[in-house]
Amino acid sequence: MSDENERIEKTLKAGEILRQVRAEAVKLIKPGVRLLEVAEFVENRIVELGGKPAFPCNISINSDAAHFTPKRDDERTFAEGDLVKLDIGAHVDGYIADTAISIDLGDNSELVGAAEEALKNAINAIHAGIDTAELGRIIEATIKEFGFKPIINLTGHGLQRWIAHAPPTIYNFATQRGVRLEEGMIVAIEPFATNGAGKVTERSEVEIFSLINLKPVRMKQARELLEEIKPYQTLPFAKRWLSKAPDLIINRLVREGVLRAYPVLTEVGKGLVSQAEHTVIVEEDGARIVT
C-alpha cells in the first residue's frame, strides 16, 4: 500500500470508529450520569473497535469550551440544563480523525444549531483551492445570523500523522488572508458559538498533557513516568491514564519543558458555548466527510 493510500485508508477507518462511538456515547449523556463513565466508555470503545484515542475524551460543559476531561475518581455528573460538548478523537497507526457534537440537556437548541449550521455551510464550501479565510467568513456569518458570536481564539486545524493540531489553522471568523486548501489535505472544521464575549481563557484545572521534548531527567520517578508516557508519542494523554501521576513530578516536567499542559478553556464572559466538528478530506470539487 502506498503511503498516500495508507494515510487515507487509516484516517477513514479512524473516522468510521468515531462515527459509531459518537452515536453510542450521545445516548449515555443524561442528568445524573458520571462524566467519568462516559469518558471511559468512549476511550475503551475506540480501542474495542480497532483504534486508539488520539486524545482524552473531552467533555466540556456550559461555559467550558475545551480541554476538560474527568479526573481519575471523578464523581461529577451531568445536570438538567447542561450544554455538553463531546469532543473525541481516534487514530489508527497515528492517522487521526477528530469530531465533536453538542448535547443539550436544557433549552439551548438555537446555540447548538448555530455551531452545526456553521459547520455544514463551511464544509459545503470546501474544494481544492479555497482560502481558509473564506471558511472563517462563512462560519462567522452563520453564527451571527443566529444571534451569537464565534469564539475567536479557538480554531479548526489540519491533521497529520501523530499530530492532532497541525497547520493550517482555520479561524472561526473572517481574516484578511488564510491558506489555500489543497487536494488531499485532511482538516478538522470546528466552529464554536457562544452567547458570551466570544473568547476563551485558561482556568486552573488541568488533566491533559502531551510530551513535547523527551530529554534526560534526573529523578527516578520522572524517568519512570516518561517511560509510561512515551507510547503516546506527541499525542495528548490524561493524567488518569497513568498508573501513578504525582502532581509534583508532572508539574516539574511541565516547568522543564518536557511536557505541555492543556488547562481547561472557558468563555471569558461566562457565556454558554456550543461546538460542532467534522474531519474532512479536501477533494478537487468538494470535501469528503470522514467522521
Rank of each mutant, 00 (worst) to 15 (best):
residue 254 V to K: 08
residue 216 P to K: 00
residue 182 E to R: 06
residue 278 H to L: 04
residue 111 L to N: 08
residue 93 D to M: 02
residue 42 V to L: 11
residue 1 M to I: 10
residue 259 L to G: 03
residue 13 K to W: 06
residue 14 A to E: 04
residue 21 V to H: 00
residue 256 E to V: 05
residue 214 L to T: 01
residue 8 I to S: 04
residue 274 S to L: 10
residue 55 F to E: 12
residue 191 P to R: 01
residue 44 N to V: 01
residue 227 E to Q: 13
residue 179 V to G: 05
residue 132 T to N: 02
residue 233 Q to N: 14
residue 79 A to S: 15
residue 83 L to T: 02
residue 223 R to H: 04
residue 276 A to R: 02
residue 179 V to N: 00
residue 284 E to G: 03
residue 160 Q to G: 10
residue 75 E to G: 10
residue 111 L to A: 03
residue 250 I to V: 15
residue 39 A to S: 15
residue 89 G to S: 03
residue 2 S to T: 15
residue 219 M to F: 11
residue 242 L to M: 15
residue 217 V to C: 01
residue 147 G to A: 08
residue 203 R to Y: 12
residue 134 E to N: 00
residue 123 I to H: 01
residue 18 L to H: 02
residue 143 I to G: 06
residue 201 T to A: 13
residue 106 G to W: 14
residue 50 G to H: 03
residue 69 T to S: 13
residue 43 E to R: 09
residue 194 T to W: 11
residue 134 E to D: 13
residue 109 S to N: 13
residue 205 E to W: 13
residue 40 E to M: 14
residue 266 T to S: 15
residue 43 E to W: 11
residue 171 Y to Q: 08
residue 178 G to A: 03
residue 201 T to I: 14
residue 12 L to Q: 09
residue 286 G to V: 07
residue 52 K to T: 06
residue 122 A to S: 12
residue 65 A to V: 04
residue 158 G to I: 02
residue 191 P to I: 04
residue 234 T to G: 00
residue 117 E to K: 14
residue 44 N to D: 15
residue 166 A to Y: 10
residue 237 F to M: 00
residue 79 A to L: 14
residue 236 P to L: 03
residue 139 I to R: 08
residue 177 R to H: 11
residue 231 P to K: 13
residue 249 I to N: 06
residue 22 R to V: 12
residue 252 R to C: 00
residue 194 T to L: 06
residue 67 H to S: 11
residue 128 A to H: 02
residue 248 L to S: 15
residue 33 V to H: 08
residue 217 V to D: 04
residue 33 V to C: 05
residue 241 W to D: 13
residue 63 S to N: 10
residue 183 E to S: 02
residue 5 N to Q: 14
residue 61 I to K: 02
residue 61 I to M: 07
residue 138 I to D: 03
residue 231 P to F: 12
residue 6 E to N: 11
